[in-house]
């Protein structure tokens, strides 16, 4: 270091050749380009409407940019918001409780045996592969429209999300306390309760608050398929082309989500 060689090596002998680009990188690039082309053709991708149709769409967009706040005073709108809130509270509570049990079964650390663990993992990935609307449609068909199918659909949806995230947190817990509790003669259930649960509790709680927020947002979509909440009001307004009213209701929904998110952040800080 103190005496750097002043001259570079003069001979090229011994210098390695530049390696050719790796096969993996080439494959990745080819796959990327091919899939992108396939997708672009499939969705008939073009940006020309941005220039051509911007004027045609502009009066609709104009209405969205000028929300009709008066709509918010209507009792139907107020009830819609309350129903959304009720649905979200019940669905996240029930969903998270069930998810905790399933998460314990879906992690190698806490599952009774590998069979249970693998079956649970599979079930959870199946549950998560359907979007919330699909569950909404199913439960509306099963029990009729209203808040009930909304609650049930979101319970299933929440189980998928929370159980997956929590089981991954369980996979990552410090194994030491688990071994220590095992060495003290605890049963598998007690190991989960005393060595695993305290370690994942903060993560688990934040996932629960996270799905609560997702559930408030989901009410927008679920209303479109008849599963209750403010989304039903929004769908009605959309079908009547009352764009400025839709805008006001949507903005209000996000104001509510924002306020509740801040509140839940404060609660979480206290808890952890």
């Amino acid at each position: 270091m103190s005496a750097p060689a002043p001259t570079a090596a003069v001979t090229s002998r011994g210098r390695p050749r530049k390696p050719p680009p790796s096969i993996g990188a080439i494959t990745a690039l080819v796959v990327f380009v091919a899939v992108t082309l396939w997708s672009a053709i499939g969705v008939e991708f073009t940006l020309s409407p941005l220039i051509v149709n911007l004027t045609r769409g502009s009066d609709v967009i104009e209405q969205y940019l000028h929300p009709n706040w008066e709509i918010l005073t209507r009792p139907a709108v107020r009830e819609g918001f309350l129903e959304t809130l009720y649905i979200a509270i019940l669905a996240s509570l029930v969903g998270c409780l069930i998810a905790l049990v399933l998460a314990m079964l879906a992690s190698k650390v806490s599952a009774p045996n590998t069979g249970v663990y693998q079956v649970m993992k599979l079930i959870l990935s199946l549950v998560r592969s359907l979007p919330d609307v699909a569950y909404g449609l199913l439960f509306v068909a099963f029990v009729g429209s209203g808040a009930l199918p909304g609650i049930l659909a979101l319970i299933v949806f929440n189980i998928g999300v929370v159980a997956k995230l929590t089981s991954e947190s369980i996979d990552a817990v410090d194994h030491g306390p688990v071994e220590a509790v095992e060495a003290a003669g605890a049963t598998r259930f007690q190991r989960g309760r005393y060595a695993v649960l305290p370690q994942v509790a903060p993560n688990y709680l934040s996932y629960c608050f996270y799905v609560f927020e997702l559930n408030l947002r989901a009410s927008l979509v679920l209303g479109f398929v008849g599963a209750g909440g403010i989304g039903e009001v929004i769908m009605l307004l959309v079908s009547r082309l009352e764009h400025s009213s839709v805008s006001a209701v949507v903005i209000m929904l996000f104001a509510i989500v924002f306020v509740l998110d801040q509140a839940s952040r404060a609660v979480r800080r206290r808890l952890t």
């Binding site: 941005l50 769409g57 947002r217 949507v250 924002f258």
Partner: peptide
């Protein structure tokens, strides 16, 4: 981040791009 895709689609993309996959994209 606060705007869900469905709102983007109804309020902006469908008016501009019309109904169909492009608006959704």
């Amino acid at each position: 981040r606060a705007l869900p895709e469905i709102v983007l689609a109804i309020a902006f993309m469908i008016p501009i791009f019309g109904l169909g996959a492009l608006a959704g994209t």
